[in-house]
Design a protein around this nucleic acid. Structure first.
Lengths: 206, 206
DNA sequence: GTCTATAGAGTGATAGAC
DNA sequence: GTCTATCACTCTATAGAC
């Protein structure tokens, strides 16, 4: 990809993160990237082309992170993945704040992203079942418990930035991981809880 | 309030719910309400005036529901409140889907709503502490546990419609209440769990 | 109070010179 | 590839007749 195109994409991501998806117009992008509006539309004939390019980048970088999820991990491993995901969210912050708006405006993105979400949740469920098999989580009568837990873990992590935003608050990565693991803690075995201690000690959290 | 003003407000809420906050323009509101654009702007000089009137209505109707929260209840009582809240969310659906967008566009709303949120979360915490005192919840070493639980309960219920929307799914009130109570269940005493049985039997959920 | 008509500001996209 | 200039359209808000 050519240099100007890259500059446009990175500038747009930055502006989306700063001002929100809806508030970023083409003239602003051009000015911020120090190119003319005409040049901007030369590289991306339609605004939608630019958005789709950004979503593609989003997908590619997300794939680099989530490929690790294929390998089933214990809580320590899952926590490292979670921290990677948090940093990824910071880079594409706007996506986690304006997701619904983006899905509504671009049905092609919506469709792809729906699949991604269901994959993420079922991946979490597999991880929890795995941790049950290695005696980190207590076996449950109903298998629906870990389906629910996966969904709650997903909600907590994916809407974390949004709940901070609508409350007008700032937050830390430790608060996010703590909230997420708090969901899991009640289901953990003695062995699993020792696993948690290592995680939380590392993060200097009680 | 005069009849046309009321019609405009209800029409706008309906359109917001159908099409999303950002996609509703003044001409659409006027057409749907079967009045002229000039008449619409006669009743609401600025678009912002209309939005603020709707938020005021939102607050008033929400106050009618949340005044019950003052009285500390057991899980059964909290579940009735939760069901009321779900129905309220349906009426002001757009607000729970486009909350951040609305807060960004109208800082006056943001400020009021931040206070409302913190009140809601601390109210939930009080309810959980109350249920601990009446032996429905197990006392915890750290009081932070029920602070966390309140926050998770709040997130689960307030972002419920949004998580369905971004996943492209439909949902039922029972799925929402089940998810919320699943968060509480691990902390419940024997007595508290019997309390749950009544709730879930009523709703015909396993 | 309600209407029609239109001003005024912006927004995405195009045309054509260099 | 990059620029300036401008079109075509949308949207909010106002003016003035009835």
């Amino acid at each position: 990809m050519n240099k100007t195109k890259k500059k446009i994409i990175e500038t747009t991501i930055q502006l989306f993160n700063e001002s929100g998806f809806a508030n970023v117009k083409l003239p602003l992008i051009a000015n911020t990237a120090s190119i003319s509006l005409g040049n901007l539309t030369y590289h991306f004939k339609k605004k939608e082309d630019l958005i789709l390019s950004i979503y593609q980048l989003f997908q590619e970088e997300l794939a680099l992170i989530t490929k690790d999820y294929e390998v089933l991990s214990d809580f320590g491993g899952m926590n490292l993945q979670l921290r990677d995901f948090y940093n990824f969210q910071q880079r594409f912050r706007f996506f986690y704040l304006d997701l619904l708006e983006i899905e509504r405006a671009f049905p092609a993105i919506a469709e792809k992203h729906h699949q991604h979400i269901e994959g993420q949740i079922s991946g979490l469920e597999k991880s929890f079942v795995h941790n049950m098999s290695i005696d980190n989580l207590v076996p449950q009568e109903s298998p629906r418990i870990y389906k629910h837990l996966a969904q709650q873990f997903w909600m907590c992590t994916v809407f974390w930035l949004m709940q901070l935003a609508v409350r007008g608050k700032e937050g830390t990565i430790e608060e996010m991981t703590e909230s997420a693991w708090m969901l899991v803690y009640p289901y953990a075995t003695e062995k699993g809880r020792n696993n948690f201690k290592e995680i939380f000690n590392t993060e200097k959290i009680g």
